[in-house]
């Protein structure tokens, strides 16, 4: 597709958002497709010393060092097991590229702002910190995650 047609397509659908849906444990989540760079299978990660429990380690993504966040742990579920069956969603926020470990990826949803419900006012930390909206689709409930919030807090920024 040419640049111009891409731009055209974009402007045409500016009111709609595209979201990638995926499963973590028994729940379904989605994130904005614009943040997603690619999707790939799990490969064993190199453990980072003294890292947060949700940081699985780093893997080689075509020559770049990609940190992997275990989204299950990040969202307060038990850690993921059986790694071969898992999926890494590579997301980019600003200049930072991070892999999110999830159970399975499913479809790409096109939604309009009016379909997105505000997150409920429940006490769970997950809802407060990470979920920025809810989506009801064919009897499914999907939580929309704000990608920025699930990324690790950058460490060592005090050093020049």
């Amino acid at each position: 597709m040419s640049e111009s047609s891409a731009a055209l397509l974009q402007s045409r659908s500016s009111s709609a958002r595209e979201l990638i849906a995926f499963a973590v444990g028994k729940q379904e989540f989605c994130i904005d497709v614009m943040a997603v760079r690619e999707i790939r299978g799990w490969t064993p990660a190199t453990v980072l010393p003294h890292s947060q429990s949700y940081v699985r380690g780093v893997i080689n993504l075509r020559g770049a060092v990609l940190p992997i966040m275990d989204l299950a742990v990040r969202l307060g579920f038990p850690p993921a097991e059986a790694m071969g069956r898992h999926v890494i969603i590579v997301v980019q926020v600003g200049s930072q590229v991070v892999g999110l470990l999830v159970d399975a990826v499913s479809d790409i949803l096109t939604v309009t702002a009016s379909e997105i419900l505000p997150p409920p006012d429940v006490a769970s930390d997950m809802a407060k910190h990470f979920v920025c909206g809810l989506l009801a689709m064919e009897g499914r409930m999907l939580s929309i995650l704000s990608v920025d919030s699930v990324l690790p807090e950058r460490e060592g920024t005090e050093v020049q």
Binding site: E38, I39, R40, G41, R62, R85, H86, V87, A104, V105, S106, D107, I108
Partner: peptide, 29 residues
């Protein structure tokens, strides 16, 4: 589906033939 996307990261295909029922990422996705 995930492996399929990985293959397409480095290689091109003239035609893709895909199953529907698959783990991790099904045919529709």
């Amino acid at each position: 589906g995930i492996k399929g996307l990985e293959v397409l990261q480095d290689k091109r295909a003239d035609v893709i033939i895909t199953d529907i029922n698959m783990p991790r990422l099904d045919g529709f996705g």
